[in-house]
Amino acid sequence: MSTSTLASVQSRQLQDLPKQRTLLGDAARRFARNKLALLGLAMVSILLLTAIFADFIAPYPYDAANPAKALQFPSREHWMGTDEVGRDVYSRIIYGTRISLTVGVGVMAMALLIGIPLGLLAGLAGGAVDYFIMRLVEVFTAVPALMLALLLLSVFGGGLFNVILALGVVAWLDACRLLRAQLLSLRERDFVLAARMLGATSTRIAVRHLLPNTVAPLIVAATIGIPTAIFAEAGLSFLGLGINDPIPSWGKMVGNALSYMRVYWHLGVFPTLAIAITMLGFTFFGDGLRDAFDASMNR
């Protein structure tokens, strides 16, 4: 697909704006009626707010250690206890929201930013473009992800930014492949065939019928992608790579807790819960969005 076609896609979108707005409004109304989706929205909002206002919420700084109070169980003073150097686990979880969401959202953003355009190009343009994009996808799929991340971190060193890069470099494949597969499958569905028979141009079909239909699986992929990235980071911590201390990330906290949690359960349970809540929040939210869009689309 050439850039001119892309440009025309964009101009089409602009022309279609009024229609879209009703579509969006419709979806929003549906979304508002779905209790689980609202709960998801609330959870995700709370997470985001926590991340933004961590400085005001956390009772202690995330890096203030008091070895004299190391490894305390949850108490009134320390709601989630203290870790191996006497840092307040609750405060670290709060600040960890910021770090872990940065990792999760950062990796996912990288995945979508690379994956969506490439997937669209491959699925819509076909031909040589598709061929090359698919070979590129294959190159990255064919490399063991953990090994590639380790190689990259070994070459460029650890740290938050490099961890996001090392994980993001392979995270876009799912989005790209999913989008392309969906487009291929949709191309031949009844409603597209009908549109084609009615004389719609292929760009118009792409924008009006194909694109909206690919949103749902992408949202699902994204909602799973965020906790997956948080996890992959935990895996790197398990291997001793990844984000440096004292910067708190949930994944790292879980990884560290491995040698402590048999006695000091609070070190493992709370970060795991935090990841689970994030996961649930994004899942409910994503499912809600999908349901809302789907129903509106299929009208």
């Binding site: 799973i224 895996g235 398990f238 990884g255």
Partner: peptide, 9 residues
């Protein structure tokens, strides 16, 4: 649970 708790935990 399967997706939120790392398999090594």
């Amino acid at each position: 649970l399967g997706i939120t708790v790392p398999n090594f935990v």
